[in-house]
Write a protein that binds this DNA or RNA. Sequence first.
DNA 1: TTTTATTGCTTTGTGTTACAAAGTGCTTTT
DNA 2: AAAAGCACTTTGTAACACAAAGCAATAAAA
Lengths: 99, 99
Amino acid sequence: MKNPIEHLNKVFDSRIRLGIMSALMINAEVNFNELKELIEVTDGNLATHLKTLEENNYIKVQKGFVGRKTNTTYSVTKAGEKAFKLHLEALEKMIKSIS
Amino acid sequence: MKNPIEHLNKVFDSRIRLGIMSALMINAEVNFNELKELIEVTDGNLATHLKTLEENNYIKVQKGFVGRKTNTTYSVTKAGEKAFKLHLEALEKMIKSIS
DNA sequence: TTTTATTGCTTTGTGTTACAAAGTGCTTTT
DNA sequence: AAAAGCACTTTGTAACACAAAGCAATAAAA
């Protein structure tokens, strides 16, 4: 038997960061409030997790406007895509070995 | 877009508990030291996570002997199997929606 | 028979993380 | 002028992770 968790990425252990990454993999760009409603977190909490992902170089931030309102969108980086895909592969293998 | 993480089980957010459950789903019974080597945790840490799973009624404990040495084995309960499968299904759906 | 090892914990201590709530600065709408 | 929205930051608290050490019971080794 092999260690079933050795290839999992610790950054993605957090359900909220998992949710953020998942949303950003499906939609190329998602803004702050969309994420907030989707994941159902407080804005402070969301900002913290976004920062963690940013510090790990997994997502990047674009600050812009929609009409005259500020609008911050987030998207995955190449590194983030790679790391997340590896994580999902590790999860898939784990799941397959069970069922 | 739907919340990608709403059906994930918080008990299984922890990589170690995920590993324990995974090991117990594959092997009907696993003992303390096997788990310890497999997951690569200290015994104190392992005991704590096992206790959490036990308190959630997801695993059960059998105390016995191998030869003349004490031997504690762990196995999943019906509830544990159900909860874990639901968690894996939620993960799979998340993965599929991405790739 | 004294010592050492093994098993499966519990306890202790420390550091990290999660999170809500409140506060902030800037802009925009009313 | 006041209220609201956006995207945070700060603060405080509680939960969690983890290693290391301690411990009780038995067993094996010297």
